[in-house]
Amino acid sequence: MSVLAAETPQAEDPTGFFGVLAHAAEWFIGLFQAGADNFVGLLVGIIPLLIVLLTAVNALVRAIGIERIERFGAMAARPGIQWYPVRYLLLPVLSVFFLTNPMCYTMGRFLPEKYKPAFYDSSVSFVHPILGLFPHANPGELFVYYGIAAGITTLGLGLGDLAVRFLLVGLVVILIRGVVTELITTRLLARNTTRTEGALA
């Protein structure tokens, strides 16, 4: 036994045909070992916090109940400029938070037809900015945020600042998207209607 142990370090680097094979095998395994190291990093670094956070938020959502959010839907349908933030800010945020992707889009049913595309645009644009603070809303697409956030973690910087700014900018962006898409939808709907009437005449 001790003879074997003593001999091992003296073994020469394999050369020739088998040497090439051995190096290829080493390289091949190394390829996946690099991936495995990354995987363990993700499992240890992200999963524990995520599980606890997801459980807490899931419990909160269950405790509050989805029915209560639906009341906002009816309110958001009203015309007038003061309802824009309700329709394209409050309603998307609440539906993404409580109903999560992809069920959040069902809240569109409370709105008149002309607002539905804009509401969809607004809420679908919020399923990623919310991830930094509330990953329960869209766990299947976490890496849009975590991919980039992992780089920040590698540098040893905190993620809180990035997560909050991502959320805030997301809020501004979904409001702009809602308004712009509503304008375009109105124009397209009007054009489609005249075209249909023209075809009928």
Binding site: P102, M103, Y105, T106, M107, G108, R109, L111, E113, K114, K116, P117, A118, F119, Y120, D121, V124, V173, I176, R177, V180, T181, I184, T185, L188, L189, N192
Partner: peptide
């Protein structure tokens, strides 16, 4: 997404290009 919001076919017809064009701006 629009179907989940119970949108009419006419809305989908206008909504798809509306969202796509809107993205180019927003």
């Amino acid at each position: 997404g629009l179907a989940l919001g119970e949108a009419e076919p006419e809305t989908v017809e206008a909504g798809v290009p509306a969202v796509l064009f809107s993205r180019l701006i927003t």
